[in-house]
Amino acid sequence: MANSIYLDNQATTPLDPAVLEVMLPFLTSKFGNPHSASHAYGWETEAAIDVARAQVSSLIKAQEPNEIYFTSGATEANNLAIKGTMQAYGRERPHMVTVNTEHKCVLETMRYCESMGFSLTVVPVNAKGLVEIDSLEKAITNKTAIVSVMAVQNEIGTIQDIKTIATLAHSKGALFHTDAAQGFGKIPLDVQDMTIDLMSISGHKIYGPKGVGALYVKKGVRLVSQIHGGTQEDGLRAGTQAPALCAGLGMAASLAETSMITEHTRIRHLQETLLNALINLYPPLVVNGSLDERWVGNLNISFPGINGDRLIANLRAIALSSGSACSSGSATGSFVLKALDLPKELISSSLRLGIGRFTTEEDIQIAIEHFKSALEKLGKL
C-alpha cells in the first residue's frame, strides 16, 4: 500500500532491488534445470547455485560452502535439523531440549518427535526473555541429542547467548541447533567461533525472496533426510533446486555481509527515536523483553490501560503486528509474552514494530504522528 508506513519487518522484508536483478535472468532466459549435467543450460544454473551457496557460507563464516543445504525456508530447515538429528542419534540419545519462546515450528517439531517416543524438556525464560544458563544446564543430560535455542526471538527480538549455550550443549555431548531466521544477516553469526552444529536460515527476513532458506550442517554431523526422491543437496534434500530463489538468497546474504554494521547503527537510531517519542506521548508504555540484549529493529511494546485492538484500529496507516505473523489470528494472545509472565493487560495491549533497511527517518516521524492521533482519539492525550 503506497500510503502505508511499513513497520512489520519481522514478519517479512521487501525484496531488495539488487536481489531482484540477480533473480530475473533465472526466471526468463536462464531457465535450465541445475541437475541437467549434459548441456550449458544446466551448467549455468548449477554455477549460480554454487555462487549462492558460497555467499551464504561466507556470511556465517562456515568452513566450506558445501555445509550449506538449500531448503524452502527456515521452517523446513528446522524440521530437517530436529527430525533428522533424532532419527540419526535418537536411539542412543533420545532426549531433546529447547526453550519455551522458540518459534512454533521448532516447538511443534519437537512435540512431534516426542509423540514418536523421544523425550523433551522445555526450559522457561526469565522476565527479559532470556534463558537462564543454570536452568539450561540442569535440563541437558548425557542422553540429550539436540539443544535448540533461537538466536533472535521473532516477537520480542531478544538475543540469546548462543556461544555459551552451544558450549554447554557440547559439554554433555549434545548437538547445538539455532533457528537463526531473525538473526541471519542482522547480527554477527560465526558458526565456527560459536561452535554451532546446525543453523536454520530464511531468505525473506533479509530482503530476499520468500520460499527459500537454508540449513547449515557442520561437517561430520549426521542427519536423516526428510524428503526423498533424489540425490539433490548431497542426498539430504530431494527436489529440483530453484536457481532464482537460491541466487536471491545468496545476493541477500552478500548485501547483508557488507552493510550489517552500518545498518545496525542506522536502525538503532531510528528505534531510539521512535521509542523515546512514544514514551513521551504515553509514559506508562512498557518495552517487552530485554532492551539491551535485543535486535535493534524489533520493538515490542505494551500500552497499559489501552485496548490493543482499538489502538490497532486507529493505526491503519501503519503496517505493524500484535505478534508473530505465523500466529496471526490466535485468540489466546502471544504465548511468547505469556512466557515472560506478563500480566494480561500488557499482553492484550502489545504491538510489535519492525524497523528495517528501507525504513526512513520520515517514516518514523509520520508513524509518531499517527500514534499521537490514535492516542488522542482514544482519549489518552
Rank of each mutant, 00 (worst) to 15 (best):
S4Q: 12
T13E: 13
T13G: 05
P17C: 12
P17R: 06
L20K: 06
M23W: 02
S29V: 09
Y41I: 07
Y41T: 12
I49S: 08
Q55C: 07
S58M: 13
Q63M: 11
E67C: 12
T75F: 06
T85C: 14
P94F: 08
P94C: 07
T98Q: 06
C105M: 14
V123D: 02
V123F: 04
V125C: 05
G129T: 03
V131F: 06
I133V: 15
T141Q: 14
V149R: 00
N154R: 09
K163R: 13
T167H: 06
A174I: 01
K186C: 13
L189K: 01
D193C: 09
G203H: 04
G220A: 06
L223I: 07
S225D: 10
L236D: 01
R237D: 15
A238I: 00
G239C: 13
L255N: 15
L281T: 02
Y282N: 07
P283T: 03
V287F: 00
V287K: 10
S290N: 10
R294P: 07
D309G: 06
C326E: 15
G329K: 00
S330N: 08
S330F: 09
A331W: 08
L337Y: 09
K338F: 05
K344A: 15
K344T: 11
S350H: 04
L351Y: 05
F358H: 14
T360R: 08
E362Y: 01
D363T: 02
A367M: 06
I368P: 05
E369R: 11
F371G: 03
K380G: 08
